[in-house]
């Protein structure tokens, strides 16, 4: 969808850092992360395991245990900093204004309660209505997410649903209170491709019908390209590149994003050779100096291991944390990566 930047700001994350104190030392899970989510937008957060993409959203949901977690920065939800809220204030927002769906829908549903009852319970958690009304609302929601024969299926238990259907139930549960922000953490990773396609379309339809903003966390650039209006690429807890999806996919700026694009096989054609990113992601106990990607970067030069690169703003409005001069990047993109992917 290209109504980018049209809606009101829902969520604004400013300079967020999350540190875990562990027995082995301090894990720098997220560092200096900022992004904005507007109504009607889908923000795709992409990164590999350990890139901090999930942790940043657990912080938004107030789901990190503060006794061993240090969080700095601000997470403004409609102007209020959720990091400053007390538990019971947060509870009023969580699941109501900001809802979340997870990767494994089976682990998120109670196996011994009927699906309808679990949905009705979610209704009753924030609304003062009768049990019957809550049940009816549950059935309506199951219908809204495309579960056939919803009234009967509401009486079924989670194990009687397939993986895709369970994820639909989770989406229904997230929609109980017409949330403003829907956070989907790898919602299709556990699903088969044909089911994945159904769920991605459902999330997009839900976004339009319920007029909310969606944060889609994934490791799959393909999923992001299909659904997101904005993309944030994370590596080692830091933002690498951030901007409108169009700009990122037609003119990626960061060597890490290039690496991701180059190393991915595609259904379109068989590539001569896949270009992997050599090495493996750094330990967040001892992240490298300078740009966290520099030890694996093919294009590193002398400033890369010194000062951390700031986010540079590019003429097309997208942000990028890399010291390579723009002319050099344009050259590399058009000659190599973009040309190979056919998106120059």
């Amino acid at each position: 969808m290209s109504e980018a930047g049209s809606g009101a700001t829902l969520l604004e994350v400013r300079d967020l850092s999350v540190r875990f104190r562990t027995r082995d030392g301090v894990v720098q899970a997220v560092s200096n992360l900022s992004y904005t989510l507007r109504r009607g937008e889908t923000l795709g957060i992409v990164g590999e395991s350990g890139s901090g993409k999930s942790v940043s959203n657990l912080a938004t949901m107030g789901l990190l245990n503060r006794s061993y977690t240090d969080i700095t920065g601000e997470i403004l939800f409609e102007g209020t900093d959720v990091l400053k809220l007390r538990q019971e204030q947060m509870r009023r927002i969580r699941g109501k204004d900001i809802a979340m769906i997870f990767q494994d829908p089976f682990a998120s549903l109670h196996p011994m309660y009927r699906v309808g009852k679990q949905l009705a319970e979610a209704v009753l958690a924030h609304e003062d209505v009768s049990r019957d009304a809550a049940w009816n609302r549950a059935v309506e929601l199951l219908e809204a997410v495309g579960i056939p024969n919803a009234r009967a299926r509401a009486r079924d238990y989670p194990h009687q649903f397939s993986g895709g259907m369970r994820q639909r139930v989770m989406i229904a549960m997230a929609l109980v209170h017409n949330p403003d922000v829907l956070i989907a953490d790898e919602p299709t990773t556990a699903l088969d491709v044909t089911v994945q396609a159904q769920i991605l379309e459902l999330i997009d339809r839900v976004k339009r019908e319920f007029d909310c903003g969606v944060i889609l966390i994934t490791h799959d650039l393909g999923v992001v390209a299909e659904t997101a209006s904005h993309v944030l690429v994370m590596y080692a807890g830091r933002p690498m590149e951030y901007g409108p999806a169009q700009e990122i996919f037609t003119g990626a700026q960061h060597p890490y994003t290039w690496g991701l694009l180059e190393s991915m096989p595609t259904v379109e054609k068989r590539l001569e050779i896949l270009v992997p990113i050599e090495g493996s992601p750094p330990s967040l106990l001892h992240p490298p100096s300078g740009c966290p990607f520099h030890p694996r970067c093919k294009y590193r030069f002398e400033p890369c291991d010194g000062e951390r690169p700031p986010l540079f703003r590019l003429p097309d409005g997208h942000l990028d944390a890399c010291y390579l001069p723009p002319e050099r990047k344009r050259e590399l993109w058009t000659k190599r990566i973009g040309a190979e992917l056919g998106v120059t």
């Binding site: 969808m1 290209s2 889908t42 491709v193 044909t194 994945q196 396609a197 159904q198 991605l200 379309e201 997009d204 799959d220 650039l221 393909g222 999923v223 992001v224 390209a225 299909e226 659904t227 997101a228 209006s229 409108p244 999806a245 169009q246 700009e247 996919f249 037609t250 694009l261 991915m264 595609t266 259904v267 379109e268 992917l341 056919g342 998106v343």
Partner: peptide
Amino acid sequence: AALLSAVPKPETNGGGYGRRRIIL
């Protein structure tokens, strides 16, 4: 055919569901 059409692809014109996808 349905399998192939369902695979999300990184090279698109910046999001949206313009592609001809066969939903089973």
